[in-house]
Amino acid sequence: MTIHVIWFAAALMGVLAFSVLGRLISGPTVADRAVALDTLNTYVLGLMLLLAVACDSVVMVDVGIVYASLSFVGTMFIARHIEGEV
């Protein structure tokens, strides 16, 4: 029964991740899009944790850790680009 709740929450997280796309596409400046991308990355990490439990595969959590680290590197590079250094 707990598994059903976790699947449901994972589905809602997926809907939330899609809902961010509006700001990602329409954001007036590059910085707005970067903020939306950062939010999307956080949602995807939460989704990965929930799916790891729901699908009963622990290795998904490791993938999530690597995803979070790489998205951080991406955010830092976008910030550098906005500043005008790259």
Binding site: A31, D38, T42, G64, I65, F72, I82
Partner: peptide
């Protein structure tokens, strides 16, 4: 994963605001 998230989210927000 939670520790990685706490550190990277705050630092990323700071970098974006400064930039």
């Amino acid at each position: 994963a939670l520790m990685v998230l706490l550190i990277t989210n705050a630092t990323g927000a700071h970098a974006l605001a400064r930039a």
